[in-house]
């Protein structure tokens, strides 16, 4: 199968997942106790029977179930997620404003944790019973034993209260107004550092353990012995023959844990007041802003499915056998 074909196939299945989430969304709304017209009426300060009927007609609530479902799906497809009660702006605009921040946090955390995890894993695997390996293991254990909000607060206390090198909240310094691109870039990076490290800390723990184990297995493989018998140095064997083979399980796991990174981001954003979807979700829960929550749900689904798509494509380029198995 060609790359294009399998890409299209995956894209279609991704759309299917999104459609299912949208339908579930609608069901959640529909099955929730109470009448939506009542809720709207409440925000307007009450209404009589005639106004209620008018409201139902306006919002299409008097239509049969499937027509309503169809209309909802259609609206979502045209990026109409409704209106936020709390912020009083269209949900889509609200999400688009916050989405890049989350995207930045999630992807940078994922990339950093993969990079650091693989580096530590490879390092530890070279001497599996040595001190360095023990250190990596302890470090990893700490990484996934510590709750992310706790790590976050600890880092905050350490690096913005006592040693003031990183800002404690937000994404930009509002005092910088007319800077060059690099000034702004540096500013965002400085704000990004702590939340990203906090979010990455759980995941590079997992990745380094996994990479160490997979590397150890690969180093015992016959083809590694063959490579040594060819006269390649240990370093060449490690970085060319062994590394590529040990990556598949790590990347597979990274793809699977992408949704966990996204949900982890919600906590981290709250701790650092990072202006992303996480804080928005948090605020929407408190203010019962259902349309916003549902919009965020659809967006995080989108993000996770895109993440999985990327994982699949990476694995495909890494391992020619996958192409063959399809």
């Amino acid at each position: 199968m060609t790359l294009l074909f399998s890409f299209i196939k995956r894209l279609l299945s991704m759309l299917l997942v999104l459609l299912v989430v949208v339908i579930l969304n609608f069901l959640m709304l529909h099955l929730a106790p109470g009448d939506i017209a009542d809720t709207i009426a409440q925000t307007m300060g009450g209404a009589d029977e005639q106004d209620m009927a008018q409201l139902r007609k306006e919002y299409g609530l008097d239509q049969p179930f499937f027509i309503q479902l169809f209309q909802y799906v259609l609206r979502v497809a045209t990026l109409d997620f409704g209106h936020s009660h709390f912020y009083n702006v269209p949900v889509f605009d609200l999400i688009m404003e916050r989405f890049p921040a989350t995207l930045l946090l999630v992807f940078s955390a994922q990339i950093v944790s993969l990079f650091v995890g693989i580096l530590l894993g490879v390092y530890a695997a070279q001497n599996p019973n040595g001190l360095s390996s023990l250190f990596v293991n302890m470090f990893s254990l700490f990484g996934y034993a510590a709750p992310v909000f706790w790590t976050g607060i600890l880092l905050l206390i350490a690096f913005s209260l006592h040693i003031q090198i990183f800002p404690s909240a937000g994404m930009r310094d509002i005092t910088i107004e007319n800077g060059s691109f690099f000034v702004h870039f540096f500013d965002v990076m400085r704000h990004l550092f702590l939340p990203m490290i906090t979010l990455a800390s759980i995941f590079f723990a997992y990745y380094s353990r996994l990479c160490r184990a997979s590397m150890l297995e690969v180093l015992g493989a016959d083809y590694v012995r063959t490579a040594r018998a060819k006269g390649l140095s240990k370093k060449e064997v490690l970085l060319k023959h062994a590394l590529k083979n040990s990556l598949s399980p790590v990347i597979t796991f990274a793809g699977l844990s992408f949704s966990a990174v996204v949900s982890g981001a919600i906590l981290v954003e709250t701790v650092y007041s990072w202006p992303g979807l996480g804080t928005l979700a948090f605020n929407s829960i408190i203010s019962r802003d259902t349309p916003v929550l549902l919009g965020i749900l659809i967006f995080s689904t989108l993000m996770v499915t895109v993440g999985n798509l990327l994982t699949d494509l990476t694995l495909r380029t890494l391992d020619p056998r996958i192409k063959n198995a399809e």
Binding site: A221, D222, H241, P320
Partner: peptide
């Protein structure tokens, strides 16, 4: 000095 091994199935690197 060079060497051939028993298992042809696993003696070659699957990714190259």
């Amino acid at each position: 000095i060079s060497m051939i091994f028993q298992e042809p199935m696993t003696s070659l690197n699957p990714l190259f």
